[in-house]
Design a protein around this nucleic acid. Structure first.
Ligand SMILES: [Zn+2]
Length: 291
DNA sequence: CACACTCCCCGGTTGC
DNA sequence: TGCAACCGGGGAGTG
């Protein structure tokens, strides 16, 4: 599952190879066309296939950046007008920069290639998504899709800590489990199940502890731990678990450094770890070490 | 208006 | 070998 570090890895992989490319045409898989015809918002969101497909040709990719778990492709058309192609990888999305679809080595991704941006006959960027939880949106600005404006600041930016502390005092959050709180994209950008699990374990905080039962000092420590874990993961290329792939199917090594996520035994005391569903997500923790 | 709750989107994986 | 249940990021809809 791509979280902030994994998306950062994808963006760093994309930047040198597709910045400056001019989109000549766009292919959409029959599967997606079929779903869209049945009224489903399959991958291509907020637009029908035809308008998405006809809008992109003639646009150039001028810049690529990560914002939370989203990839922003900044585009410019021939008249110099700016657009934003926003990509979220969902559970199983991946980008492949290839000469042809056959260059996608893993069959399960090749089989689920859904959107192809063609730059030339043998030069293309392919979006593959096994479970189709990902999304692509063509906007003029972020404001065209208001949820983007509600995302928490980037965790590495000044202001992110204060934002998080302020949110922790709101009625809607004070009774929430701390794990649900830090995984909420309106509170912290880009922290999903893996890194929330790690940060809480590293600080010995029980994932179900209520937000209001954590001191300000402890909350500050936790925020800094989340940042530290995210940075460590970025340095290690992210965690390659199940369907996450970096660009062109590459793998990270952070999964080998995880202490608690998907572990059977606690690395501190050796007792079997516990599992609890918090906010609909499986949460692994040590019942002895985490309070 | 704020909040709580449910549903949906999928297919690989798991378990009976 | 078959098949149903399970899982999950995050928006949208309902009450
Ligand atoms: Zn322990």
């Amino acid at each position: 599952m791509p979280e902030l570090p994994e998306v950062e890895g994808v963006v760093r992989g994309l930047q040198p190879v597709v910045t400056g490319k001019l989109i000549k045409s766009v292919d959409v898989s029959p599967t997606i066309i079929h779903s869209k015809e049945n009224g489903k918002e399959a991958i291509i969101k907020g637009a029908d296939v035809e308008s998405f497909q006809s809008a992109l040709p003639g646009m150039a990719i001028v810049r690529i950046e990560r914002r939370s778990k989203y990839i922003y492709f900044h585009l410019k058309n021939q008249d110099g007008e700016s657009f934003l192609l926003v990509s979220h990888l969902g559970m199983s999305g991946a980008w492949f920069y290839v000469r042809s679809l056959d260059d996608i080595m893993e069959e399960k991704f090749k089989k689920h290639s859904h959107v192809t941006l063609h730059f030339d006959e043998d030069d293309m960027l392919v979006y593959a998504d096994i479970r189709r939880f990902g999304e692509l949106r063509l906007l003029e600005t972020e404001a065209d899709y208001p949820p983007l404006l509600l995302m928490a600041p980037e965790p590495f930016n000044k202001g992110a800590l204060d934002h998080y502390l302020n949110m922790s005092l709101l009625p809607r959050y004070e009774n929430k489990p701390i794990k649900e709180f830090i995984m909420d994209g309106h509170v912290v950008s880009g922290c999903g199940n893996i890194y929330a699990t790690e940060a809480l374990f590293n600080l010995r905080i029980h994932p179900a502890r209520k937000v209001k039962r954590i001191s300000k000092e402890r909350k500050i420590q936790l925020f800094h731990e989340i940042v530290a874990v995210l940075l460590d993961s970025i340095e290690n290329g992210g965690s390659t678990i199940s369907d996450y792939r970096s660009i062109n199917g590459g793998a990270g090594t952070m999964q080998h450094r995880l202490q608690m996520y998907s572990k059977k035994n606690c690395p501190i005391c050796g007792k079997p770890t516990k599992q609890k569903t918090i906010a609909g997500r499986t949460s692994t923790y040590c019942g002895s070490c985490q309070k």
